[in-house]
Amino acid sequence: MKLNLKIWRQAGPEDRGRLVAYRVDDADEDMSFLELLDVLNERLALDGEEPVAFDHDCREGICGACSMVINGEPHGPQKATTTCQLHLRHFRDGESITIEPFRAAAFPVVRDLVVDRGSLDRIVASGGYISAPTGSAPEAHATPVPKANADRAFTAAACIGCGACVAACPNGSASLFLGAKITHLGELPQGQPERSDRVVRMVETHDTEGFGGCTNTGECAVACPKEIPLDVISQLNRDYRKATTGGRRSA
């Protein structure tokens, strides 16, 4: 199949960047979207041009590295699917496809489609953990966890940290990512001692990193390849309210 691509090219953070048109004539519908870029890059390299830089690693939808906006949608049109798992059979022969990086002030463009998502790591560093230094753990069965809580914790913990929620959000907010971690740790008995501190610190870092505020538009949950549900944001708000009004700690 033939595809007309318009790809964002940007030499570095200082460059303004622009969309450049490419045509791929030998695409195959069994190819993944990243393999399409591989094919293009092979050709560009042989022509002495610089290949399109893009992040990827596992290519099986779990590492969260791949990150691009395809025709206005982070990870492209298929529901619950990362770019690396998106296959060309979901596109028409001759279709025009615009490919852009995730756009957010908190995700500065490094080059072409590669962005720096270190801000998400810093949100986690500011509280997205349970302090359990190695060696200090009690026997695993000392604390049973009701299955319902364990299941909800797991659903939230399935986040791959890709940042598609931020890319999709009209406010550039990372609330779905943040809510997912708050919910994961907050559902478990082990997560209780640090629960208040955690939410206050993580929200603070979230705001400081330059992410926008959530207005519950719901675009994030639609874009999320792991289908993290919106109620994690509700949980985030609730925990934050409790933490800041309970007198335990102020924001």
Partner: peptide
């Protein structure tokens, strides 16, 4: 043996049974 204890303490959401055990 210790690994499982350590990971549970960190909040790794292992599959559990209805009784709440792993």
């Amino acid at each position: 043996l210790q690994i499982i204890d350590q990971c549970v303490a960190q909040g790794v959401p292992f599959a559990r049974e209805y009784g709440g055990l792993l």
